[in-house]
């Protein structure tokens, strides 16, 4: 009996928390790696439509984004409600697209350049006019790989 009591007395009732910082740091590094900080603010409102036949865009560095949508409320006094293009973090017109593509292209190593994809993030309520214009410009500048950004459909 005495033997048992002695053992119970020796066992410490607390769990060691010494490794807690390590665990937290591990989680921290995970989130630091997966985080993509938003580059610049969205100046146009974009809600991409839904679709089913989706393909994932693989390498982030090979993708440039072209946003098309109506200016958000804050900018409507200045830019109206007509659909506009946003490249990077500022409003642009079709004529700015070739330069934008070129600026992205020089950052990509030469052998990978044919795989550059333009991701068109277009609001569902925008009419095709402006989209067609952008498509024509893309064709003229030789940027033929295009991805129409979409959300996966909920049902089905």
């Amino acid at each position: 009996m005495a033997h048992f009591q002695k053992k119970r007395g020796k066992a410490s009732p607390e769990v060691s928390t010494a490794s807690l910082p390590d665990i937290i740091f591990m989680l921290l590094f995970f989130f630091m790696v997966v985080t993509v900080l938003r580059d610049g603010e969205r100046k146009v409102k974009v809600v991409v439509p839904e679709a089913t036949q989706l393909q994932k865009l693989e390498q982030k560095s090979l993708v440039n984004h072209i946003w098309i949508g109506r200016p958000v409320e804050k900018f409507q006094d200045l830019y109206g409600t007509k659909p506009r293009i946003q490249l990077g973090d500022k409003f642009a017109t079709e004529n700015d697209i070739p330069l934008f593509l070129e600026q992205h292209k020089i950052k990509v190593p030469e052998p990978q350049r044919p795989q550059i994809t333009s991701s068109l993030k277009v609001d569902g309520d925008v009419t095709m006019g402006i989209v067609s214009d952008v498509k024509t410009i893309l064709r003229k500048s030789g940027q033929l790989k295009v991805n129409y950004s979409a959300r996966p459909k909920q049902t089905r």
Binding site: P21, I24, F25, L27, L28, F31, M32, V34, T35, V36, L37, R38, V48, A51, Q53, L54, Q55, K56, L57, K60, V63, T117, S119, L120, K135, T136, L138, R139, K140, G142, Q143, L144, K145, V146, N147, Y148, S149, A150, R151, P152
Partner: peptide, 28 residues
Amino acid sequence: IAFLLLIFFLVTTTIDVDKGITVKLPPW
């Protein structure tokens, strides 16, 4: 301190995968 940083990154993280319909446009 690590918790603080962790929570900051948790909040700012958006794990969004870029998906869409890929098309090849005809050359101009």
